[in-house]
């Protein structure tokens, strides 16, 4: 049982639960303070929430899916997905595109 708790996968899980509770709290906290706006720019808060999510995603990929022990190609593909999707989400959040590409 002790080896189970000292396992890196268990440590990863503990961090993931903690990060989820932090996001949960950040999300709720803003709701309460929304009346007194501009204490913190909500855009920084949202950016933080997205970054936390993609850090969690990478932990899941590395430790749960065991990609950390897999060949370089798979590690690179997974990291490319994490970086690209996270970057595009944040870009579109900060710099929304006008309605041009209706084919989207």
């Amino acid at each position: 049982m002790l080896t189970l708790l000292r396992n890196p996968v268990t440590v990863a899980w503990f961090l993931l639960m903690l990060a989820t509770c932090l996001s949960w709290w950040l999300g709720l906290d803003h709701d309460l303070s929304s009346a007194s706006q501009a204490v913190v720019d909500v855009r920084y808060l949202s950016t933080g929430l997205i970054l936390i999510a993609f850090i969690k995603v990478r932990i899941v990929i590395r430790y749960f899916m065991e990609v950390g022990k897999s060949p370089l190609a798979l590690r690179l593909i997974c990291d490319a997905w994490v970086l690209a999707v996270c970057a595009v989400i944040l870009y579109l959040y900060w710099f929304p595109l006008p309605l041009v590409a209706t084919s989207l």
Partner: peptide, 18 residues
């Protein structure tokens, strides 16, 4: 684990982001 991973992104995207 992939099912878990996709939900981890959906959670802030749909529920939290302001």
């Amino acid at each position: 684990h992939m099912v878990d991973l996709l939900w981890i992104v959906l959670f802030p995207l749909l529920y939290l982001m302001k």
